[in-house]
Amino acid sequence: MTNLAVQQLIDAQSPDGGWGAYPGAASRTEATALATLALWANGPGDAEDGFAAGSRWLETRQLSSGAWPLADDIPEPSWSSSLATLALSHFAPDSERTARAGGWLLRQEGRGTPWWGKLFYRLFPDRRAVDLDPDLVGWPWVEGTFSWVEPTSYASMALKRLRVALPHGRVASRIDQADRLLVDRACHDGGWNYGNASVLGDALWPYPDTTALALLALADRPDLPQVGDGLAALGRLLDENDSILALGLGGLAFRAHGAPEAAGVRERLTDRLEDRRGGELRALAWAALALADTDDPLGVRGA
């Protein structure tokens, strides 16, 4: 049976085959990559035409560098390339364009802390403004800026899916660094903020969406204590958050880690979808992925 989120995604698909951030908005890569992946994960049936059109939208927007722009009217290579690459790693894993996308991702790096900043960290560790390891490099939202939890999680998920197809040494090194960065950025009481654990000595609090994304990126690392702490934090956070984005991503993260909370979140998510009115289409796509019948919809755990 087609899950409710899939049906709502099909209803919201734009005539050009993509999806906008909201229903009726111009198509963008983030929502299109997630929605197309969600339709693929939910198998053929009513979604087949929608999947084919979404897949074509992604194919025709890929730049020669391997990256994707955010949208037709914002032509620069964008962070949403990670999500398009993740989608392609599922339904076109051996294609030339997927390898090109993975190659572009490997070349992207967050801007590091300058040498004198690192020196300052080492000389005055108690005066650090932000609590993080300045040597770790992940992925930024925009080229030339800092590495953040969310774009690093997206890129790490995509590369873990493609690690066999890409140059072994380079991909292993970037994945290892991404894992270490996520471990380093975990909040003191578990879970992930969008950035790091504290600023000016005050602890930052974790968010459900960034916590779930980090847990998805670390789905193959159940050995890490931050994963157990993160799952516990996610459970607490979802007690107070009923949004479709939080329940979709949270449910997906629980499933990826085989956590028993997944069933309850799935039930709440289904209830919420029944009274859904509008809202972000990327949230709907994450919900559709969370409700897919496959055991590990993002496939990071077994990658």
Partner: peptide, 13 residues
């Protein structure tokens, strides 16, 4: 944010 990320880090840099 869709163009410049969260927390609008381009502006900080």
């Amino acid at each position: 944010g869709a163009v410049y990320g969260w927390p609008k880090n381009v502006l900080h840099w």
